[in-house]
Amino acid sequence: MSASAFVVRRGRASLRVQRRTASVFALCLVAIPLALVVSVAVGEFPVPLSEAFSALVGRGDPGTSFVIHDLRLPRALAALLAGAALGISGAIFQEVTRNALVSPDIVGVSGGASAAACAVIVLTPWDGPWAVPLGALAGALVSGALLFGLSWRDGLTGYRVVLVGIGLSSLALALTSYVLTRGRVFEVGEAYVWLVGTVNGRGWDQVTPLAMSMVLLVPASLLAGRQLDALVLGDDIARGLGAPVGRSRAGLLVLATLLTAVAVATAGPIGFVAFIAPHLARRALDSRSATALMPASAACGALLVLVADVVSRLIFAPTEMPVGLITSILAAPYFLVMLRRAANLGAAG
């Protein structure tokens, strides 16, 4: 056993943990709650951090509690959950396809959601808190069903899913552009903000369904993800190691697609998070373990969207920027610096 790792034993089960991995997760466990408290504290009506914390644990005065519980907390949770879902989804797609450029955005699931949401905003008179999220979810699920239906041939391979996804996403993009050239400019502007990705005005109505679906999807993904370490070695080696290759890959891809669908329905297609979160997590962990990558990528995605949402409210206050703008402006320079430092980049970056 090397000094950089330790082993946790409980009964017959044992787990070898890299010290670096453990410290990354410890850091996230501190940083995410901290970011959550900061997120509910800042805004047009600033609340001191200590009072925000009291209100969160149910001991604040009624006025502050209302602002924090009913207005800011659902929004912060929407950012956190959507970021985590996109982080896991991106990690699964990159590891299963063994390609560093893949993210769920590329396979047309968020594209289908975008086309449907834009159509709802621009072409239909439907309104209310449910219309756009439901439209987006329906678009994502339809394009997801098409994706797997069309790429199924004695099972799924990551490569075929990505190629079919490219075809579907270009169709979805064409539909979106078409819708954008049809509408009146006011509605087109509204659709554009949704396309950039925003959590502005999200309430419990939207967060509760997201949270409930993630309660199912995240543990399932983490369980299925235990096969990833074998899958990234290639099909033949994975089979030799006894991994059920076809089943676990299909399961992982479907779970990743569903995670993207629920995240995009709530927060819009926040670009870049699903692509960058696994890269950030890989650099932080400094290990090739795919099993550790998924939760780390979820944490990176959650932290990124949460912080970006805070910045988006502060940077041009009182005007709010859509959070999707800030995620890339925050993460891109950091990633470019890391890219210069990294000496060698494997196939999966």
Binding site: A100, L101, Y192, V196, G271, F272, F275, I276, H279, M321, P322, G324, L325, I326, S328, I329, A332, P333, F335, L336, L339, A342, L345, A347, G349
Partner: peptide
């Protein structure tokens, strides 16, 4: 891979500035 990643990241950064 470094070129592709640098391009992908710069691309999203520019798209964000455009969207802004």
């Amino acid at each position: 891979i470094r070129l592709a990643l640098a391009g992908a990241v710069l691309m999203t950064l520019l798209i964000s500035l455009t969207s802004a």
